[in-house]
Design a protein around this nucleic acid. Structure first.
Length: 269
DNA sequence: CTGTAATGC
DNA sequence: GCATTACAG
């Protein structure tokens, strides 16, 4: 009797030891990840916000944006797309609303009417379908840009779907999207909303292994080319837009990641 | 999924 | 203006 309980105690102790050892290993790995991006995981939404060239950053509940009054649209829209955000829910499309939080006055949706261009979401409705409130919030005029319908439903839609695929595969990504806004562009409607000649998307992933980035720069035309042909270094988008995308990253890491147009870490399957 | 447009109240 | 329906890439 005594001998048996001795064995039991020993077995329990060994098991405890194994669990403790594994726990320490796990802790070590997590710490390692956090060190790479400092406070990255603590407040991702604020941490990854790009700089604004206009000084008008607006925080909505489900995404943030920097509004460019001259072009009557956002220069960037940024949000975290978590794996848990992905939803097959199909909410009914509401009407677009003028974003009243834009102090200089956001574009009116009538400026897009009969313009020949789509009201193209920058933050896609499908990326905020985890609640009706979040979904409907994407239908603000500060979140749209004039897009050719074939482009919007073609190559751009393909990219948006790929982002959702990556959010699922990599347990979330942080997304920044916008049109490249330049001095002279075609405009539409009474508000003279600029029609960008290129659109970009910049992604950063710090949830799955080593931190990684990827940037896309796509001409405002539909294309049959594979998406990976539109990959550019983040530096190139920064040069075109004047936006600094991840200013809070430690400089050495930021410089290294933003100079690369290597996409081997991102699965295109 | 991404959207526009016509119709009736 | 809002709701419903039809249609297209």
């Amino acid at each position: 009797m005594r001998r048996k309980s001795g064995f039991t105690l020993l077995a329990v102790l060994i098991l405890l030891g194994v669990f403790a050892y594994e726990y320490v290993l796990e802790e070590k790995e997590q710490t390692h990840i956090i060190v790479e991006g400092e406070k990255v995981k603590r407040n991702t939404n604020a941490y990854f916000l790009p700089t604004s060239t206009t000084g008008q950053i607006i925080h909505h509940n489900s995404y943030s944006l920097s509004y460019h009054e001259d072009h009557e649209q956002a220069e960037w829209v940024a949000y975290e797309l978590k794996k848990s955000h992905l939803s097959s829910t199909n909410f009914k499309r509401p009407y677009f609303e003028v974003d009243k939080t834009v102090k200089t006055g956001a574009a009116h949706w009538r400026s897009y009417k009969n313009s020949g261009y789509d009201r193209g979401h920058l933050c896609p409705a499908a990326d905020r379908s985890y609640s009706k409130e979040a979904h409907d919030e994407t239908f603000l005029t500060s979140n749209i840009s004039p897009q050719d319908h074939d482009f919007n439903s073609g190559i751009w839609n393909k990219l948006e779907q790929k982002v959702r695929y990556w959010a699922h595969k990599y347990d979330g990504v942080f997304v920044v999207t916008g049109g490249v806004l330049k001095e002279k562009m075609e405009t539409i409607g009474e508000d003279a909303v600029s029609v960008p000649n290129q659109f970009y998307k910049v992604l950063i992933d710090n949830n799955n292994g080593p931190i990684k980035m990827i940037a896309f720069l796509i001409p405002h035309n539909d294309s049959d080319k594979p998406l990976h042909e539109f990959v550019v270094p983040v530096d190139e988008v920064e040069k075109l837009t004047g936006i600094d995308f991840f200013p809070e990253l430690e400089d050495e890491l930021e410089n290294k990641l933003e100079a690369s147009s290597n996409y081997k870490d991102w699965s295109f399957n």
